[in-house]
Amino acid sequence: MAFETLISVPELQSLIASGSGVLLLDCTFELGAPEKGPALYAEGHLPGAHYAHLDEDLAGPPDGTNGRHPLPARVALAAWLRTQGLRKGQQAVAYDSNGGAWAARAWWLLRWMGHAPVAVLDGGKPAWVEAGLPLETTPPGPVMTGNFEAGEPLTAAPADAADVLANIGGGEAQVLDARDPSRFRGDPNPIDPVPGHIPGARNRFFGDNLGPDGRFRPAAELAADFTALLDGKPAVLSCGSGVTACHNALAMEIAGLPGARLYPGSWSEWISDPARPVETGEG
């Protein structure tokens, strides 16, 4: 059985015990302190997990105009995944300690690379620890290079700034912004040098996809939320830099609402051109 959205701790345990081989990606990260992710990984990670750094492995180099976390080149990402041992058709599981905020980026990227069996660990490392399961403090030993090759994307084509700008006038699609409500409104914060959001966007804070236990809410609840926000329109997903927007993409997939387009550059790319319009307030 392949897992393509979420996998629970018991399901992951069973999969590991089966000996079928799972590629585990630890996506622990902290905005504003990129060195903390590797340190937290070293303090304890799921057995056999490889570290996936958001800045270095799950993004391409920013140039000041393409956002903080532009998409990596497909050839570079495929090569990195092979060095982690990924094989064609192998189950991959991404996790973090932040409700899937960073792991969802790895999930979206692997689907963009044409790899279907990839899931996010529901509840992440905290759920694993809560179940009384062990962690390791050393990285996995040398692995055999995998045979993964990029295939046709399993995601909708990403949107770019020109697509989003054109949509402001026509309004054919609904932009959903995954940042927290304060940042969306344009309250002063240390992350966004220009406050506000894309005109016409609606706020769907990625944290609202989770229940109090840090796991994803039921599919029916997610479907009701997104359906109300979209009002029959297709979705373009944005956030600060194209990362937590992937959390909304995952939630929509769980809800049975596939086909949302990611705007990878998101707000950090949008504001790199002062000619692009900005809106503040609740939206």
Score class of each variant (00 low, 15 high):
63 D>V: 10
77 L>V: 11
74 R>V: 15
105 R>Y: 09
137 T>Y: 01
109 L>E: 02
121 L>D: 14
99 G>K: 04
103 A>Q: 06
58 L>V: 14
55 D>W: 11
130 E>V: 02
77 L>N: 05
68 R>V: 10
83 T>Q: 01
63 D>T: 13
148 F>N: 01
133 L>Q: 03
119 A>Y: 09
39 A>I: 08
133 L>N: 11
116 A>F: 01
72 P>H: 02
79 A>I: 04
115 H>Y: 07
137 T>N: 13
44 G>L: 04
157 A>Y: 04
91 Q>C: 09
89 G>E: 00
131 A>E: 07
38 P>K: 10
119 A>V: 05
127 A>G: 15
43 E>K: 14
42 A>G: 10
58 L>R: 14
85 G>D: 00
121 L>H: 12
36 K>P: 02
101 A>K: 07
144 M>A: 15
154 L>T: 06
101 A>N: 01
56 E>L: 10
151 G>I: 03
117 P>R: 05
88 K>T: 05
123 G>M: 13
91 Q>A: 04
65 T>S: 14
123 G>L: 06
93 V>P: 11
134 P>F: 10
117 P>I: 08
151 G>D: 09
135 L>D: 03
57 D>L: 09
128 W>R: 06
125 K>M: 10
130 E>D: 15
127 A>M: 07
53 H>T: 10
113 M>E: 15
135 L>R: 02
67 G>D: 12
79 A>C: 05
157 A>H: 06
100 G>M: 04
52 A>V: 06
97 S>H: 08
95 Y>E: 15
61 P>F: 04
83 T>H: 00
136 E>V: 03
89 G>V: 00
86 L>M: 12
94 A>K: 03
91 Q>L: 05
116 A>N: 10
102 W>P: 01
123 G>W: 14
142 P>C: 02
